[in-house]
Amino acid sequence: MARRLTAATGLLRNPLARVLIGRVLAGVPVVFAAMTLSFMLVHLLPGDPVNAVLDPTSSPTPEQRENLRHQLGLDGSLPRQFADYAGRVAHGDLGHSIQSGRAVSTMIGDTIGPSLQLAGAALVLALIASCAISLIQVSTRHRPIRALATILPPASLAFPGYWVGIVLMSIFAFGLGWFPATGADGLSALVLPAVTLAIPATAFLTRVLSAGLQEALAQPYVLIARAKGATPRRVVLRHAFRNGLIPTITVAGLAISYLLAGAVITETVFARPGIGRTVVAAVSQHDIPVVQGFVMLFAVVFVVVNIVIDLLYVVADPRITTGRAALA
């Protein structure tokens, strides 16, 4: 009896499993909310949504209007429409593009690869750069360098991403000819867009990381480490860094979802295929089913990213999993 009980609770005892289960469950309402939101999108349109979607200059026939109404899932009562929509989404059917008639899920599948590549590359760059900059900032005794590491990242946020992209393009593609200006062929085409996208992410992560580092360095345990005779290097790397990393992990999820949003701009600037450009095209063509599909996609990405973040958090901070004051 007792043994069976341990077996059953064994899974729940494992902190990683517990967090994982909790997070997946917590993700359900998020996805549901995103679904509700994307459903409401059509109904938020002022007047008849069909009018907003149809080109007003083309004076559509009543038949066309009815077709479109059906296509948008706008026939039947509101709860009925919602139930239908939810049912379709649950089966992975995100509807069809009004413009091209292609299945939205296929469109996502076709474009997500290059976008993930871009966002992933930018994330790696941003992580490396932000660690380097904030470590330099807290360890250098050279004042101008410290000032530069402090001022530069937040200042870079003032420059619009699309403009930075164009400037980089005119210097490194047109001027020096090191990288191709546009396209998605090979690694060299990835460099400029990834750098463009990584700059604001670096600024964001650096700010959080260096704030975390500075806070950690002001803690009494750092003083204690120094009182033990630790070198500044040991103090920063062994004691401050891991503690300073914890708040950074918390916001890394935010950074990733903004990387994906930034892809909208970057892909447009560098004429790269990807979800960003697809969304922009859908928005300008009032292709509501496609927009709805991408809202759902982002909700799922958000949930997945947060699950990963929470697992990282468990690894980084022992206070999450082990009981509080177990021996008190």
Binding site: Q219, P220, I224, A227, K228, D317, R319
Partner: peptide, 18 residues
């Protein structure tokens, strides 16, 4: 640490939490 040891005030904050 070798010739002089230090015991601080706040026992929680003085230990590295991780």
């Amino acid at each position: 640490g070798v010739e002089i040891g230090y015991v601080p005030q706040d026992p929680l904050a003085a230990l590295n939490p991780v």
